[in-house]
């Protein structure tokens, strides 16, 4: 149990998707104008990452990896399909995003309207594919660890996007130099938030 919590906390604060790896930047910058829409997108990302990372973990360990097919029989033990990783991962992600879109449309049409174009774009949100690729690189021991990594990364993204949206709502009333307004100042604030998050480095549960 403890290592699950540890992985979760690490992926929220230390290996934060946005501040440490810059994944999901496009939607992070585009949807963070108001807190409401950013909460919606944040939840969608948590949900999609929480599903796709464990599913891709199973895919990696029982189909794609070197020798992963040995459960079919000894003659498959030498098969290595890892060159198919990218295409399989992205297929799973695209399917899951479609699913989330249908669910949100059913449950909350207003949220669906306000997220608009960005929902399909979750499919090309680097945070989602990045979550799966980092999962592959870190060799998690079991599916529980992979799930807590997925959820933690999603929650880290949620924190980041809600935080920046709140700051952007306030900064509208400040006297920012004209060429820096909008995108430029958002980048610099994100950098400063990243520096703040670096102070979590070295936390171990």
């Amino acid at each position: 149990m403890q290592e699950f919590v540890n992985i979760f906390v690490r992926s929220v604060f230390i290996d934060n998707m946005v501040f440490a790896y810059f994944l999901g930047m496009c939607s992070y910058l585009a949807v963070s104008r108001t807190v409401n829409t950013s909460v919606g997108l944040g939840f969608a990302v948590v949900f999609v990452l929480g599903i796709t990372v464990p599913v891709n973990y199973l895919l990696e360990n029982f189909i794609l990896g070197r020798g992963a097919l040995s459960w079919l029989g000894p003659q498959f033990a030498a098969v290595d399909l890892s060159f198919l990783t990218f295409i399989m991962f992205i297929a799973i992600i695209a399917a899951m995003v479609q699913l989330v879109e249908m669910i949100i449309e059913k449950i909350s049409p207003t949220l669906h309207n306000s997220l608009g174009i960005f929902l399909p774009l979750i499919a090309v949100n680097c945070a989602i594919l990045g979550g799966s690729l980092f999962m592959q690189e870190r060799n998690f021991a079991n599916i529980g660890e992979a799930s807590s990594f997925g959820l933690g990364s999603g929650f880290g993204f949620f924190l980041a996007i809600v935080g920046i949206a709140a700051i952007r709502e306030k900064i509208r009333y400040s006297a920012v130099p004209a060429p820096l307004r909008g995108l430029g100042i958002t980048f610099i604030i994100t950098g400063l938030m990243g520096i703040a998050f670096m102070s979590f480095m070295g936390i171990e549960l």
């Binding site: 810059f22 060429p179 430029g184 958002t186 400063l192």
Partner: peptide, 19 residues
Amino acid sequence: ILPPMALITVGIIIWVHRH
């Protein structure tokens, strides 16, 4: 070399470009 400075560098490039 640390990640946050990349953000600030891009922020400055945008600043100069828009200026």
